[in-house]
Amino acid sequence: MEKILAAASAVLGERVSRPVDLGGSSRSHVLRCETGDGGTVVVKAYLDASGFGAEVAGLPLGGGLGPRLLAVDPSFPLIVMSDLGAGPSLADVLLGESADAAREGLLTWARTYGRIAVAGAGRRHEWERSRAAYSGDGAGRRPFPEVGDLREVLPVVPAGLGGELTTLKAIVERYPVFSPGDICPDNNLLTADGLRVLDFESAGYHSAFLEAAYVRMPFATCWCAFRLPPRVEAEIEDVYRKEVLVVHPELADDELWEAGVRQAVAVWTIFMTWVLVPRARERDEPMHSTRTPVPSRRQLLRYRWSRLLDELDRGGDEFPAVREAVRACLESTAEWEVVELPRYPAFTPTEPG
């Protein structure tokens, strides 16, 4: 802690003190610190160089919708950012009691990420140069599993699965947009100035479809994942889509959009199957160690698999091997006997649509 404060003070050019731990992750330490004039800043010290480089490069591309980058120390490495305050997160609102507040938060969330996509349009080379300067040649992108990775995870590996995974993996580069990366509800702060994004540690360019799938699933890789009313889900997806048409107007084609989002749902579901199944087989535990309510690993997996089958049914006969593998996942875990994933607490079971 003393080393972090000393390095932050040196690079900022004024003393920071009285740190408050904001949580961070296994990849970083995040501290709210006081400055000499009584203000506060946020100091983030990294254990992962790729996360450091992505965030330093990504914050200036955020269109003013994230923290301002105040100082950078590549030798530590750490950054000092403006403090966005301590308002409720989107997760707090979704787990709360107001459907109106949750709906408005989701609409603002979708609009914000669409606008960030627009702000980063045409700036990919700028981001890549900056990221490489601070973290070398590692982009920090989440890996996508190959067939060999899934053999220990899936109950069956159907013929043709490898080819279908190759097809799905290609979606990552289609219709790219800039994104902070980790767009889960707890990384979004609802402030007096609107929604502000807290985390650019996984920032970079990936398909708009991968972002849109976060709406439809919802929140592909997050602990704060329950069901949305279909009406609300469609509304927030439409808001994001309209914003991103500024970058990729061809996505106004409904057939193209539906196929792309459907494939992105498959990509995220396969990825999270790879991540969660080994731990879920061992025992069922909550997706978050301290927050409540929260789904369990098994509960979330079974929902993801069921939802993907519904999506694939809309696509006709595409991806039969993926379909067979996912159906086998559901059949082989029937003994888990978990209750169906409910709606977000803010959207009661009687909430229309």
Rank of each mutant, 00 (worst) to 15 (best):
M1W: 06
M1S: 04
L5I: 05
L5N: 04
A6N: 10
L12C: 01
V20H: 08
L22P: 04
G24N: 11
R32Q: 07
R32K: 13
T35W: 06
G36T: 12
V41Y: 00
F52N: 00
F52I: 02
P60N: 06
G62L: 10
G63I: 03
R68W: 02
L69H: 14
V72L: 11
A99V: 10
E104I: 06
L107R: 09
R111A: 02
R115W: 13
G120V: 07
W127S: 01
W127E: 02
E128L: 08
E128S: 07
A133D: 11
R141W: 15
P143V: 05
F144R: 00
V147H: 03
E152P: 10
V156G: 02
V156K: 00
A159F: 10
T167I: 02
T167R: 05
V172A: 13
C184D: 09
L190S: 11
L190A: 04
A192E: 15
D193E: 14
F200C: 14
M217A: 09
A220P: 13
A225R: 06
V232Y: 08
E235T: 04
E243V: 07
L245C: 12
V247P: 04
D253G: 09
R262H: 13
A264V: 04
W268P: 06
W268E: 14
M272D: 13
V277D: 00
P278S: 07
P278C: 12
R279K: 14
A280K: 00
E282T: 12
E282K: 15
R283I: 02
R283Q: 06
E285T: 15
M287N: 03
H288L: 04
S289C: 06
T290E: 15
P295G: 11
S296M: 09
S306Q: 11
S306R: 13
L308D: 02
L308N: 04
L309A: 07
E311G: 05
R314V: 07
G315C: 04
D317F: 12
F319L: 09
P320L: 02
A321Q: 11
R323E: 12
A334G: 01
V339I: 11
Y344I: 03
G353K: 14
